[in-house]
Amino acid sequence: MKKQYSSFPLDEQNPAFPDEKEMFWPTLMVRVGKSHQQTPRFPAVVDSGSPWCIFKSDIGKFLGIDVYAGKRYKMGGVISGITEPIYFHKVKIYVEQDWVIDVTAGFADKLGVTGILGRTGFFDNFHVHFDHSVKPPILQIDRIQKPN
């Protein structure tokens, strides 16, 4: 499946790239599910830099998950020194209208986006290709067939 990146606002332009007036992110429309409950659809960023799939805590709370009762870990980023707690739970992710995957996903209060599809849970279920030779760039994903 191929999909164009989606554009998001850019509040402050980078003077090094004055032509960039908006941000293009590789996103897929997903729902997260637990038991028989599902969230509304939302755009989740496909991010090979993330070790896991991560969602804002509100997504888990909406599903009735006791977010802070999950296995707790700390996550840092590219700027050292700041870490945030992240709590893990087993959920289902409904990817576009095509696939359902079982994932142990993290939930974090201060995530700056609605959701992230990371390496464990997403990249081990899909071959992912990013094509930046065109504008907007194109994301391609193909489901990995695993033996039962």
Binding site: P9, E12, P43, V45, D47, I86, K110, L111
Partner: peptide, 26 residues
């Protein structure tokens, strides 16, 4: 009945998404 939802942060800015927080939020 079935809207699309999205979290709108305080500032829309480029980020390494895997970073769990933004400086301003921290």
């Amino acid at each position: 009945d079935d809207p699309i939802v999205v979290w709108a942060p305080k500032t829309w800015q480029p980020c390494v998404h895997s970073w769990a927080t933004r400086v301003e939020d921290a």
